[in-house]
Each structure stands twice: as C-alpha cells, then as structure tokens.
C-alpha cells in the first residue's frame, strides 16, 4: 500500500475515506465541531480534571507533566501511564484526550484501547519517528495534530487527522508563535483562494500538501477540519486574541495549573473564549486573576530547543 506521505495517494485516500458512507470521518470530525468555542485544558490528576470540568472545559488533555515541566525536566517525554489516563477518564464526563509521540503508533493503539476520545499526535512529546507520522486512518479514535502552516496542516489531514491545532511553542506561556502559526495558516488559505485553478498543483508542490486538499481549500476558503489554537496561551486575553484572529477554540496547557489560582484562571479563560469579541466583558473577566504562569520568551529559545520544529 502507498504511504500517506505521498501527496497524491494521501489525497486519493482522503477523498475516499471522507465519504460519509465509507469511514468514520464525519463522526470523528463531528466531535471536534462539538468542541468549538470551547477550551481544552491540560490536566495531570483526576482532581485537576474535575477542576477543569467544573470551570466549563469542553475536554481535558490527560498527561503526566504539563509542557512547561517537560521543557524544564528535559529527557524523553512519552505517553502517560494508562493508570493515570483511566483515572482521569473515570473522573469526568467530558471527552478525554491524550498524547502519543509523533510516529508512535503503538502508543496510539494503547490510547484507543483505553477509550481515549481524541489522540494528540504531539510534538510536546519526544518524537518516535524522524520520518513518518502515524497513519491515522487506521483508527476509530480521532486525531488532532499540530501545524505551523497550511502544508503541515493538510499533510496531517491527508494522513487522517480530524482536527488541527497551531503548534505555537508549548510550555512557554508566550503567545507569539501560536499567533504566527494561526496567521500563517490563514495567509496560506488566502493565497490558495486567490490563485487561478491552473496554479493549484504548483502551490500543492510548494506547500508539500496533497493536491485534492488544496483544491478543497480553494473551494471552501477554510481548512476541511476544525482548527484550534495551542501553544503558549496563558490569559483570557490570549484566548480572545486567537479567537478574534479566527481559530475555533483553544487548548490551554501549562497556563491553567501553573497559574496562581487555577480554578479562577480556568473559569476566566472559558468565559473569554465565549465572549472573545466583547471588550467590556473581557475587561471584567480579566480582573483580579492573580499571576499567570511564569513565562519564557519564546523568541529567545534556540531553534534546536523548540518543540514546534518536531514533525514536518
């Protein structure tokens, strides 16, 4: 069988698999549609998961260490212990996500077996494969993947991802790269939309993106799946900024449980994501939250220490 990293084969496969009568594409992407306008929060214990659910999170990401701790500790970051993930699944009624290493399809198989509702094939963990991402069509469990531009987003969708998020620079509390990636994806979409049809194949080549998906973006003017922001969101204003730029919801990693008052910060970010376009509400929401997470200026992190450059 052709690998899904071959543009043409990946696109053909996407076209085939995304037909409602063939695969689970609509129910996979459909769950992401239900999460829109919501906040997905990183949690490391069942108690934190309850705090997140009580604050109005639409989903939680179960992991052993939040990205800022992974960044600080160094070493190899892997899938979390199944005991931890199951404990969190049992603690809440909202959907539970968990991370597998890039290319580590056995970690993914384990997560699917645990009943995880969405798998994040994530650059926050140490990649298991330098060349290949997981063939995500093989699973009933849907996938979310990080992207910095349209090519990366459409490659992941070609491999079967049913949801995209910006990569940003996880664990920094610095929003700058999430903003860059969200804007880049939008700029690329505008380029595709403005191009005459005879230029689309060349754009597909330049982006390294499946041709059929480039054609789909030209037709609809948006990604074929839901697009959230992630990587560095630390305040209600950060969440609202990304929503105004045009993402459909936000992931908050270290930003909640590394802040002074996690329950209050969680609640405020949920409110801000709903009323992202209302400055008076945002002013009210932003009052008296205590300190946000301690940050690291992402632009000062050398490229070889950035998480966003993992995967391609």
């Amino acid at each position: 069988m052709a690998t899904s990293t071959n543009g043409a084969a990946g696109a053909q496969r996407w076209k085939e698999m995304s037909k409602p009568e063939v695969g689970d594409w609509r129910v996979k992407g459909g769950l992401a549609q239900m999460l829109k306008g919501g906040v997905i929060m990183d949690v490391v214990t069942p108690d934190q998961a309850k705090v997140a659910e009580d604050a109005g999170a639409v989903s939680v990401m179960a992991l052993e260490r939040v990205p800022s701790d992974i960044r600080r500790d160094g070493g190899v970051a892997r899938m979390s212990d199944p005991d931890l993930i199951s404990g969190i699944i049992d603690a809440v009624s909202i959907p539970v996500m968990a991370k597998a290493r890039i290319g580590h399809f056995v970690e993914a198989q384990i997560l699917e077996s645990l009943g995880v509702d969405y798998c994040d094939e994530s650059e926050v963990l140490t990649p298991a494969d330098n060349e290949y991402h997981i063939d995500k069509w093989q699973y009933k469990m849907p996938y979310v993947c990080g992207a910095r531009n349209i090519g990366e987003a459409l490659r992941r969708i070609g491999e079967g991802a049913a949801m995209i998020r910006t990569k940003g620079e996880a664990g920094t509390g610095d929003i700058v790269h999430a903003v860059t990636h969200a804007r880049q994806i939008q700029a690329d979409i505008r380029t595709i939309q403005a191009a005459p049809t005879e230029e689309l194949m060349t754009l597909a080549r330049d982006y390294g993106a499946p041709y059929e998906l480039v054609v789909e973006v030209a037709r609809t003017g948006k990604l074929p799946v839901v697009n959230f922001a992630a990587g560095g969101i630390a305040t209600p204003a950060d969440a609202a900024l990304l929503m105004q730029i045009g993402v459909e919801g936000v992931f908050v990693g270290s930003g909640i449980f590394k802040s002074d008052n996690p329950a209050k910060m969680a609640d405020a970010i949920v409110r801000a994501t709903t009323h992202f376009n209302d400055p008076d509400m945002l002013a009210e929401i932003s009052r008296g939250l205590g300190d946000a997470m301690p940050g690291i200026e992402a632009n000062k992190i050398p490229e070889d220490q950035q998480l966003q450059t993992r995967g391609w």
């Binding site: 549609q33 239900m34 999460l35 829109k36 306008g37 919501g38 659910e53 009580d54 604050a55 109005g56 999170a57 639409v58 989903s59 009624s93 909202i94 959907p95 949920v270 409110r271 709903t274």
Partner: peptide, 15 residues
C-alpha cells in the same frame, strides 16, 4: 446546538 452539555449548562447559569 451540539457541544459539551456541562459547558453549556455552566455558561447558561454564568450569563
């Protein structure tokens, strides 16, 4: 609409 019921209930009360 569809969404997360816990979230929507909370937001209905909150607002």
């Amino acid at each position: 609409p569809g969404g997360e019921s816990t979230t929507i209930v909370k937001l209905l009360h909150m607002f």
